[in-house]
């Protein structure tokens, strides 16, 4: 008996150790980037174009580029993803087709990000002749975040109680009216959470935009959706591996801005989710 308790103590110690092995580095990464990146941040850094081969100046075009890419991606992915989620939650029957759709979503989520880049290059840049452009990059990112949006929106729709649907139908509302007036309004917080998570994902990805949009060094703002653009994650990659002798402050500063952007979006998503859970009336 005593022996088995000693075994338990040892086992629990190792489990705790495993947990700390993950959590402590996460904390350290965030702390280091804040500590070394924050001093680099000033108005000039976020509002100026990069100068002298990106060794001084700011990162404004990269911020703008990321903003365009993320907006374009969500503009494409949200309507399709939301309708797909409605299909799965409200219309799909338990049959082979539904099973295949679900499998396709899982696979779409699992395709390596660099393969998305290849696909975007082949379809949008070369085949549809968009060239390396914001349009091609946005569409590629949009397809990539589709599974995130479908999965979270579907969960949100399915969490609306079935009884609400029955009440609405029993009052003579059609299926679409029921979805439009009852199901969707009550799923909005969940859909919003999914959308923001998708935004965060799109903002942080590099590989899909490598060959579809990203400009190595373009010290001006993009003029149209057929223009190339800089983007924060690619810019960080470039100044940390491709350009020698970049001041470490600029690297950390860029990492800080990117991380802050992504974590901020995740934080907003988490806040919406918790608020919604507390407020839930049923």
């Amino acid at each position: 008996m005593r022996n088995s308790h000693r075994t338990q103590n040892i086992a629990f110690f190792f489990l705790l150790l495993a947990t700390l092995l993950i959590i402590i580095p996460v904390g350290l990464i965030v702390v280091v980037i804040i500590q070394k990146g924050l001093p680099a941040i000033n108005w000039q850094f976020v509002s100026d174009i990069p100068r002298q081969g990106m060794r001084t100046g700011g990162i404004f075009p990269a911020i703008v580029g990321t903003f365009y890419l993320v907006s374009g991606a969500i503009l494409f992915a949200l309507p399709i993803g939301l309708l797909a989620a409605i299909y799965l939650s409200e219309y799909a029957k338990e049959n082979l087709l539904t099973r295949i759709i679900k499998l396709a979503i899982v696979n779409l989520a699992g395709v390596p990000s660099v393969v998305y880049g290849l696909f975007g290059l082949a379809l949008f840049v070369v085949f549809l002749k968009f060239g390396a452009s914001i349009l091609a990059g946005s569409l590629t990112l949009g397809i990539m975040i589709l599974p995130v949006i479908i999965t979270t929106s579907r969960e949100a729709l399915e969490s609306v109680p079935q009884s609400f649907r029955e009440v609405s139908l029993s009052l003579g509302a059609s299926k679409w009216q029921t979805i439009r007036h009852i199901v969707l309004p009550n799923a909005i917080p969940g859909i919003l959470t999914g959308t923001i998570l998708g935004l965060g994902r799109a903002a942080g990805e590099t590989a899909p935009i490598l060959f579809t949009v990203a400009a190595f060094y373009l010290p001006r703002l993009p003029k149209s959706i057929f223009d190339q653009a800089m983007a924060l994650p690619y810019h960080l990659y470039v100044i940390s591996t491709q350009v020698p002798n970049v001041d470490e402050k600029i690297r950390y500063g860029t990492a800080f801005v990117l991380l802050t952007l992504v974590l901020f979006m995740n934080l907003v998503a988490i806040i919406i989710r918790t608020k919604f859970r507390k407020k839930k009336k049923w």
């Binding site: 965060g200 942080g204 990805e205 994650p233 690297r251 990117l258």
Partner: peptide, 22 residues
Amino acid sequence: ILKAGIELLAAIPSVVLGFVGM
């Protein structure tokens, strides 16, 4: 707290992790 930490890790862009790793 631990779950939030894990979610945080999932959210960090891979290029940032690569940078920190470097």
